[in-house]
């Protein structure tokens, strides 16, 4: 059987299997951190990812996971580059990614458009009961992507995927 040559779409599709190590429901594609995919000679693949935060400790793991997954797709060399050519923002989450965050009981980030306003961190909608009678407890949470809030309506602490 003759296999068709590897396409960029094949790579993007395979990358949907590579999950964010900190929120494994979301793929790296849903997160919006894959900024470029290209295929070179002998089906070598080059993937560029951009960090969510400079101090993200999961970068190496994500690069290794990408290499593992794409290694099953091609016999060629797989190169993963991390750079800031495109600067990540929560605006780059896909619609599917946002939906999955919601299902995982994260409050969603509002549109940032380059500047995080203090208002976007207060009175965010509680992911459990939908109330906006909520308070920001701390803009810093268990990982760099999360802020902690408290809902005065359902008396429950919750996390927001914080806008950046």
């Amino acid at each position: 059987m003759v296999r068709e040559s590897l396409s960029v779409d094949d790579v993007w599709k395979a990358l949907e299997d590579v999950k964010d190590p900190e929120i494994p429901k979301l793929s790296l594609v849903d997160m919006g951190i894959v900024t470029s995919v290209s295929i070179g000679e002998d089906e070598s693949v080059r993937v560029v990812i951009t960090p969510t935060f400079a101090g993200c400790p999961a970068l190496k793991m994500m690069a290794d996971d990408i290499k593992d997954r794409l290694g099953k797709l091609t016999k060629g060399n797989v190169e993963v580059e991390v750079n800031y050519d495109v600067q990540w923002s929560t605006d780059m989450l896909t619609e599917k990614g946002r939906q999955m965050l919601k299902e995982s009981h994260f409050a969603l980030p509002g549109q940032v458009n380059g500047f995080v306003s203090a208002e976007s961190l207060i009175k965010v909608e509680c992911p459990f009961c939908g109330s906006r009678d909520t308070r920001l407890q701390s803009p810093f949470g268990p990982t760099q992507c999360r802020a902690i809030h408290y809902c005065d309506n359902c008396k429950q602490a919750f996390e927001q995927f914080k806008p950046v």
Partner: peptide, 20 residues
């Protein structure tokens, strides 16, 4: 606790920025 996390989190950002 929140301040413990805040300073730890800012430390992580700064080390990441220094790496870049």
């Amino acid at each position: 606790l929140e301040e413990d996390i805040a300073f730890s989190s800012m430390a992580q950002d700064k080390l990441g920025q220094s790496l870049a």
